[in-house]
Design a protein around this nucleic acid. Structure first.
Lengths: 199, 199
DNA sequence: GGTGTTGTCTACCAAATGGTAGAGGAATGT
DNA sequence: ACATTCCTCTACCATTTGGTAGACAACACC
């Protein structure tokens, strides 16, 4: 077995399970069983459950950051196009692995030290986004508003819709490929309308 | 002590604690301590934790339904005004007791039977909302789109923003009264822009 | 006064949980 | 050949959790 392989597999399984059922609801035994390894092996790679949670969050934040970075670089200058590119970049992995965003929702419940660590990992990204929104508002290319709250609202919309399929199911939506594309289309139209400068 | 008082106090404490920390993270002992009563007293009123969770959810859904119903009746005919009234009605209790919406987010993780019970409690409300959106789209008073997904998107935005104060804190937001009003104002402007018919 | 009924309690339990102790196998370096 | 380091394991433990058993007091009904 290749070195580091076990660690990787533990991280993957933990990300899926934590995101799906919540950190508290998933025991080390369950993760160990999923990976096919003894519990002590988990505790060898991650000395405590908190350490494992933190590693999962940091990895998730890093992957998210990379995906967003790439999306921004490849998009054209128009802010709505740029935001659309970011949403597309986030939407794809969020749907393929709903665990990832679901996990972020958990941060508030974790021990403060883990939460702070995660937040410090993410805050440069957030600051940049807010500054960008402010700049484009000044140029009149998106609707005038509080850029901090606009960032929060966009985040809430995207995260909420990507992590609550059961809510959509309650309005008769099914997670088929076609319906997923439709959802993404509607989400983007929704955000464009919400952000476009008033005519 | 008045009859039914204990039961009421258990329900209230359980709603707060479940919504704040998650169902799995809150033990019966903690709830009992919060209420100031023995654990067995909880299990007298609610034979199992699942029963307690279900009671909490049904009560929350009922209260939500009543608040929305009242808001709709008192609003004027314009659909955007009507939606604003509903959001205001939901926003107020959600902020005063963030537990309530936070709990609804938990439904997907609970035992299927509890989830279904809750959904059947809520689905008439949802169906009505979707039908209403469809009607107003046909009349051209809100933007043409899939009414089911628009309902989901509005829900995701409101719920997300009301239940994730730590996300807002990461953009420098503080939960003061003034900031709360500002948040509500921006949320309503965001939704109005997202839903208004294209010019 | 006796006989339920209702509501609360103390005492207890089996299972699950996060974590410790330490053995052992397999590479690797010397 | 031997020691060391790396990785995984079995065995165990203290604590916590949801839940049971049953005592006890207050009250109602007759």
């Amino acid at each position: 077995m290749a070195a580091g392989d076990t660690r990787e597999r533990i991280l993957t399984a933990a990300t899926d399970l934590f995101g799906l059922r919540g950190v508290d609801a998933v025991s080390l035994d369950v993760i160990a069983a999923e990976v096919g390894v003894a519990k002590q092996t988990l505790l060898y790679w991650f000395p405590s459950k908190d350490d494992l949670v933190q590693a999962v969050l940091v990895q998730a934040a890093t992957q998210l950051g990379v995906a967003i970075e790439a999306a921004i670089r490849s998009a054209n200058d128009d802010p709505l196009d740029r935001i659309e590119a970011v949403v597309r970049a986030v939407f794809r992995p969020a749907v393929r692995r709903p665990a990832l965003l679901g996990l972020i929702r958990e941060v508030s419940r974790l021990s403060p030290v883990v939460g702070e660590r995660f937040q410090s990992e993410l805050s440069p990204l957030v600051d940049r986004a807010v500054a960008y929104l402010q700049k484009e508002m000044d140029r009149g290319r998106i609707r005038q508003a509080d850029p901090r709250l606009i960032a929060g609202l966009c985040y809430a919309t995207v995260t909420g819709i990507a992590t609550e399929p059961e809510v959509l199911r309650s309005v008769g939506w099914q997670p088929t490929t076609a319906e997923l594309r439709r959802l993404r289309t509607e989400l983007l139209a929704f955000l464009r309308a919400a952000l476009a400068p008033l005519a």
